[in-house]
Design a binder for these strands. Structure first.
Length: 350
DNA sequence: GGGATTTGACCTGT
DNA sequence: ACAGGTCAAATCCC
């Protein structure tokens, strides 16, 4: 899966093709979405997915590299999206691409945490948020002042084994017990155990004394909840729709038939999905995507950073809608490390 | 018995 | 001093 600066034009063309394909997928998804999300939210999410692809194409085109295929149709012209990139407060610079891609990337590398709200269908017996595809170990629970429910703290099961420092906090919403606020900190650097593990992860017990075995029993459903289990993203904090594509949103687009992936992988998710070496022509092959993701070597160096580094929070908004987590001290964020990142292209940075 | 969870103690920042 | 976050021994569960 090595795909570095010397990637061939063909590979880049594939990347763009996949981006284009992804956009088409999003559009299809928009057409077939269920009724779980409020219409507004659903539309917003999807439009952002589309506009994000839009931006990705823009970035590719504005990379300045003449090596890039020019057959990309940037902008909404292709997506037909009624919402342009100006939708995002911080993306306005993208209009007329006044903002350089580098500047754009600079902005993107700030956030070290992100949150999302997950709504569960209590009727299904779930006591906690859905399995997000990772294996978490609970290491603490704390009553939070003014909060109705305690906050649970989780860390990656493979913290010691693989030096993976991803953590998350889960707290049930005061207003709506079916909503869980999940804050992810750090990204997974672990090469996860087989994603096939329908495993379990985060049976958040938010209500003391309540058992959550039902949650585990529902894990299979969770892994397929795109097909019906109502675990919805509600992270539509519109205060900062800066970067429309949310990993979670993207994941939930179901490229790879896996819809509950956490943002932590998302950068990898995002790009890997366009990696010709990872993706089969039929991107919808069940599990293929997920498995390939699991094998992605994530951004080097990160795992060795103390957890406290994650506290370097720049943006204070929730927003699973943001492109998540890029280490502030990483020179170029995810793009820098992603093997297929167009931004590794020398032409782009130099 | 081993891994996961619980929970009081401890640490850290404000 | 207080609240939030983490540790780690005790406990639970398979």
């Amino acid at each position: 899966m090595e795909m570095n600066c010397s990637s061939s034009s063909n590979e880049r063309a594939s990347l763009i093709n996949e981006l284009t394909h992804g956009m088409e997928l999003a559009k299809r998804l928009r057409a077939h979405l269920g009724l779980e999300l409020p219409t507004e939210t659903r539309e917003m999410l999807l439009e952002q997915i589309l506009s994000s692809f839009d931006k990705a194409l823009l970035i590719l085109n504005s990379s300045g590299s003449t090596e890039w295929p020019q057959n990309v149709v940037p902008s909404s012209a292709m997506s037909g999206s009624p919402i342009s990139v100006t939708e995002s407060p911080r993306s306005e610079d993208f209009n007329g691409h006044q903002e350089s891609s580098r500047d754009f990337l600079k902005r993107r590398k700030m956030k070290t945490w992100w949150s999302e709200q997950v709504k569960v269908n209590l009727e299904n017996g779930l006591e906690g948020p859905p399995d997000d595809g990772y294996s978490w170990r609970k290491y603490g629970q704390k009553d939070i002042l003014g909060a109705k429910y305690p906050r649970s703290y989780y860390r990656c099961t493979y913290r010691s084994a693989q030096d993976c420092w991803a953590t998350k906090q889960v707290q049930r919403s005061d207003e709506d017990a079916s909503i869980f606020d999940i804050i992810y900190k750090g990204r997974h650097t672990c090469k996860m155990a087989p994603c096939s593990k329908s495993a379990p992860a985060s049976p958040e017990k938010q209500e003391p004394k309540q058992q959550t075995t039902e949650y585990h029993q529902e894990s299979n459903k969770i892994l397929n909840f795109q097909t019906g289990l109502s675990v919805d993203i509600q992270n539509m904090d519109t205060k900062e729709m800066a970067f429309p594509i949310s990993s979670t949103a993207f994941d939930r687009m179901n490229i790879g038939n896996y819809t509950s992936s956490p943002p932590t992988l998302n950068n990898n998710y995002f790009y890997s999905s366009f990696d010709p070496s990872f993706i089969s022509p039929a991107t919808s092959e069940p599990n293929y995507f997920s498995n390939s993701l699991c094998k992605i070597d994530t951004f080097g160096g990160f795992p060795h950073q103390p957890e406290s580094d994650f506290a370097d929070i720049i943006s204070v908004t929730t927003s699973g809608t943001d492109f998540p987590t890029v280490e502030p001290d990483l020179p170029l964020g995810p793009f820098h490390f992603n093997p297929i990142s167009p931004f590794d292209n020398q032409g782009f940075f130099h």
